[in-house]
């Protein structure tokens, strides 16, 4: 079967690859020849793509499940909270190849991998800090177009909104991947999602779009909204 690569719906910089292994998402490899974490590399019409697996990345699964992340464009500046070793960050780095991604992570161990990644990819700004304290990196981060949070903490929505308030430009977009079980073991995921959504609304995030990604990430939901300042 022939391989076919084309832009995935309206999401600039994200591609769907039809080929031997069915359909999957991909981003254009801005560092050709290098696979970051063992993901498949795909050649198509003189360009190289890296498989952007919806099983490994919550952003990929959110996009695959139909969410259009308007704020994620080739020249966007992104603040990414909970970067870990940079699996998803590397793909965001592909997508915003004309922009910048500030990647915040507080555990030293994954941070080492992230520093390694940042030494190869010139649009990644690694920040070793606790996302609960934006004042720790307000000297580095400036106005961004998109804030994303994947910190899997009980008060993740609060951490997320603090950062939105501090760094997101008016009309910017913000997205959080909520892990129900890290917020409450006792409540049903649907209940947790509803409460978090209400909190985000109260804090001023508008036009919320929700996408349940539990199919690929157990008890997870992504919520995307717009910030008018």
């Amino acid at each position: 079967m022939e391989i076919d690569v084309r832009q995935f719906k309206k999401q600039k910089g994200v591609y769907s690859v039809k080929g031997i292994m069915g359909v999957s998402l991909a981003t254009e490899n801005r560092l050709p020849g290098f696979s970051v974490y063992g993901e498949r590399l795909i050649d198509f019409k003189g360009k190289e793509y890296r498989e952007f697996s919806h099983k490994r990345s919550k952003i990929a699964s959110s996009i695959l499940m139909g969410l259009n992340i308007d704020a994620l464009k080739p020249d966007s500046k992104v603040l990414y909270l909970g970067a870990s070793t940079g699996t998803t960050v590397s793909h965001v780095s592909d997508i915003v190849h004309l922009g910048l991604i500030y990647a915040v992570e507080f555990a030293p161990r994954p941070m080492r991998d992230l520093l390694e990644l940042a030494s190869l990819r010139t649009n990644i700004v690694p920040i070793h800090a606790d996302a609960r304290h934006p004042e720790l990196y307000s000297d580095v981060v400036d106005g961004v177009d998109f804030v994303y949070a994947d910190v899997a903490q009980p008060n993740q929505s609060e951490i997320f909104m603090e950062n939105v308030k501090a760094f997101l430009r008016p009309n910017g977009g913000a997205m959080i991947s909520i892990k129900a079980r890290s917020i409450s073991q006792a409540k049903a995921p649907e209940q947790v999602f509803k409460e978090e959504e209400k909190y985000l609304e109260q804090k001023g995030l508008k036009d919320l779009k929700k996408v349940n990604i539990s199919k690929y990430h157990k008890d997870h939901m992504s919520i995307y909204g717009t910030w008018f300042g």
Binding site: L100, Y102, P108, M111, R112, L115, A118, S119, T122, N123, I124, V125, P126, I127, H128, A129, Y137, V140, D142
Partner: peptide, 21 residues
Amino acid sequence: YKQKVRDYAIALSRISVRQHA
């Protein structure tokens, strides 16, 4: 500007990672 921001952040993060380990 981007270059400056990145160099600054990488230098600080390196120090910080070392301190925490």
